[in-house]
């Protein structure tokens, strides 16, 4: 509905692109700080093992978004402040903009796309029931942070929620509904 078959994992391979000035591969000027060479990395994302070729300093944020098409991971600041890029790494919520691919091997990444099989994690349901989102751009990161909270603290108080969610920026100001949705999800999970 918005955009060109954007849901599909469209390969964006550089080799398909013919430009007037193709990238050179030799004789880099000495005046430049040379990039570390690209390498192949084997990653575990949402339970799938995938291989990605990238420079070792490439943040997982961009690996997940550009290389692997997990676009639910959002770029907001790139400097560990806003939380829009939050994913789970071995079960803990972390900022994917701060994890270079060179440190990703052997770790299990989960993005919002992999939080539940059918998009029906109690938090996802509660987010819809409470109509939390305004623009929605931060909400995947909010949900991933909240999911890690509920794993640690199944019945959080408002203070627990404020503390755990304190580094996820919602520019639209939906904090009131985020709190309420977390309580709802916690109650549903406790009832199971």
């Amino acid at each position: 509905m918005n955009g060109p078959a954007a849901c599909a994992a469209v390969p964006v391979a550089g080799a398909e692109i013919a430009l007037t000035a193709p990238a050179g591969t030799n004789t880099l000027p000495a005046s430049l700080n040379l990039f570390p060479p690209a390498m192949n990395y084997t990653l575990n994302v949402n339970g799938r093992t995938q291989t990605v070729e990238a420079e070792p300093d490439t943040p997982m944020l961009w690996v997940l978004r550009d290389h692997l098409n997990y676009t639910g991971v959002k770029y907001g600041c790139g400097v560990d402040v806003c939380g829009a890029c939050t994913v789970h790494v071995d079960g803990e919520s972390m900022r994917s903009c701060q994890i270079p691919i060179s440190e990703a091997a052997g770790k299990k990444f989960v993005t919002i796309e992999g939080l539940s099989a059918n998009g029906d994690h109690p938090l996802q349901k509660a987010w819809c029931d409470h109509d939390v989102a305004q623009c929605g751009y931060c909400q995947a990161g909010q949900i991933m942070t909240a999911a890690a909270l509920l794993r640690r603290t199944p019945k959080p108080t408002d203070a627990d929620i404020d503390k755990s969610m304190s580094d996820n920026l919602c520019r639209c100001g939906t904090y009131t509904r985020i709190r309420a949705a977390i309580h709802t999800a916690a109650a549903e999970m406790a009832a199971k």
Partner: peptide
């Protein structure tokens, strides 16, 4: 939104 579908401008890709 809560399943991370590519709704936003930043999510758009074409071959």
């Amino acid at each position: 939104l809560v399943t991370g579908k590519p709704l936003f401008g930043i999510d758009q890709k074409i071959p």
